[in-house]
């Protein structure tokens, strides 16, 4: 088995994010970050594939230098290497420019059999990168995958479709998007974390280290722009407390149920 590349995004915890109606931007100060949850499931899956079939697990991320500390958590989980694409030019990328930049990096890493991504990120939530990446790298794609079986050069996967699932197969290399929650990501190994913090050196690639025209990255490489952000008003909740004994509480629920027929 050759390299298994796992695209890993560091995302803010959504419960910490708040909209500022004055400036029409998201308030990010004091926000905690984490490895995107579905990407953690992808990392866990890549480690399982490696344990069975060999190969190296390489984490690939794009973002500012502070992502390093989170990628080291992935290293401590068992990944062999991590590469961070970091350059001011990459800022403001939509999913297409992101995919184009990741594709250039994946070509540079080379010698790979699998590219895994989480099905979507918790911040952007588009799930578009896996299929755009597959197109730009001219690879077969399987999205919303929950199980994988590698046998020689043959890849078998279970993917979710409307109303059920399909078992699909293809050769490798291939790109898979991994469903959120399909496994229990292992905890970072304590000793390995200490080693990662002290001795592991993250590879950082800027735009000039990739074979991609700078104008195809970041804002200038994007096809879509956010025209404006507004507060999203859904229903304002009343938050009425229903107190009393279980019997009284259930009666209140019955009353509302009857109102709705």
């Amino acid at each position: 088995m050759r390299n298994i590349i796992v695209c890993t995004k560091i995302v803010p915890k959504a419960e910490d994010m708040n909209f500022d109606p004055e400036t029409k931007t998201m308030k990010r100060s004091g926000v905690e970050n984490q490895i995107n949850e579905a990407d953690k499931n992808a990392i866990e899956l890549s480690l399982k594939i490696k344990e069975k079939n060999g190969g190296r697990v390489v984490l690939l991320s794009m973002g500012p230098p502070f992502f390093e500390q989170y990628l080291k958590i992935g290293i401590a989980m068992g990944a062999d290497d991590a590469i961070l694409l970091s350059d001011r030019l990459f800022a403001g990328a939509d999913t297409f420019a992101t995919s184009a930049t990741l594709a250039a990096a994946i070509r540079k890493i080379g010698d790979y059999d699998l590219v895994l991504c989480g099905e979507e990120t918790s911040d952007g939530g588009t799930g578009q990168v896996p299929s755009q990446l597959a197109e730009l790298l001219d690879l077969p794609q399987m999205l919303f995958v929950s199980e994988v079986d590698v046998d020689g050069n043959n890849l078998k996967a279970k993917r979710t479709i409307k109303g059920g699932y399909e078992i699909v197969e293809s050769g490798m290399p291939a790109i898979l998007s991994i469903e959120l929650g399909i496994n229990q990501p292992r905890f970072p190994d304590f000793k390995r974390k200490r080693w990662a913090d002290k001795e592991f050196s993250l590879t950082i690639w800027s735009a000039s280290s990739l074979e991609i025209k700078p104008e195809l990255t970041g804002t200038s490489g994007s096809y879509t722009i956010v025209k404006r952000l507004t507060e999203y008003f859904t229903h304002q909740r009343q938050r009425i407390s229903v107190e009393g004994t279980a019997e009284q509480q259930a009666n209140k629920i019955m009353e509302i149920l009857r109102e709705y027929g």
């Binding site: 803010p12 959504a14 419960e15 994010m17 708040n18 909209f19 998201m26 911040d123 952007g124 939530g125 994007s222 096809y223 879509t224 722009i225 956010v226 025209k227 404006r228 952000l229 507004t230 507060e231 999203y232 859904t234």
Partner: peptide, 16 residues
């Protein structure tokens, strides 16, 4: 498109 746990609505256009 709602974002960040449905706290904001981002209005997006494709310009190019």
């Amino acid at each position: 498109v709602p974002g960040y746990g449905s706290k904001v609505l981002a209005e997006i256009i494709c310009v190019r």
